[in-house]
Amino acid sequence: MNMFRSITIGQYLPGDSLLHRLDPRAKFIALLLFIVAIFLVNTYWGYLILAVIVTTFLFTSGIPLSYFFRGLRPVYYIMLFTLLIHIFFTKGGSVLLRLGPATIDSYGIYLGFYMVLRIIFLVVSTSLLTLTTSPIALTDALEYFMKPLSYLGVPAHEIAMMMTIALRFIPTLMEESEKIMKAQMARGADFESGNIINRAKNLVPLLVPLFVSSFRRADELAIAMEARCYRGGMGRTRLRELQATPRDFLAVAVAGLIIAVIAGTGL
């Protein structure tokens, strides 16, 4: 239960590396390009190049490796699952092993490892973005990319505002649920044992107070925002307007170049 306080959203770790300093929009575009590259590549050489790029960024980002890999833990199961599915169900190539009616084929193993590699690249590169970009910067970038949509009636500013508030309040609500849970445990509540129906029923003493307090919070926050003259996105300015520097354009260009090379040479 004590982990609640440790959840830093998207696991962002402040720092001063090149990745930290890039404009969030540039990072977004570069990541998208990089993901395209991951799916284009289908030779070992291609993967080697991608691996070199990713590990370079990982090591220069200043993120402790143990912290990085701890965050990836849930993904290990997905990788294992993907690998097993391919090994047992993908047919083709030569038969390596025969277990009764089932067979394990060489193509299955080959494809399984390929898929796992892709997942690794996807997850590592995406977490490099979330680890080095503050939630606000991410929301700012999203708001920027959504701006064209606001002409179609999509409430771009409101969506970004909602995300900011959600990010702001997740740790607060986590702390609160921990507190209420402990208060009910002190009255003998049991959140851990029993069958599914009983467990769901046991959650009532946790969920009701949580809802009550969230509504009160929402109410107070709305009043506080109104008191500070909030009236939607109209006429609002920003403390930090996003400002792209040559470095950011260069980053996007390099990412584009990598794709071009991969596509062009058929790596």
Binding site: E176, K179, A183, P205, V208, P209, V212
Partner: peptide, 10 residues
Amino acid sequence: FQFPEQQLFA
């Protein structure tokens, strides 16, 4: 706990 009224639910 502090502000125990926040745990009322029934």
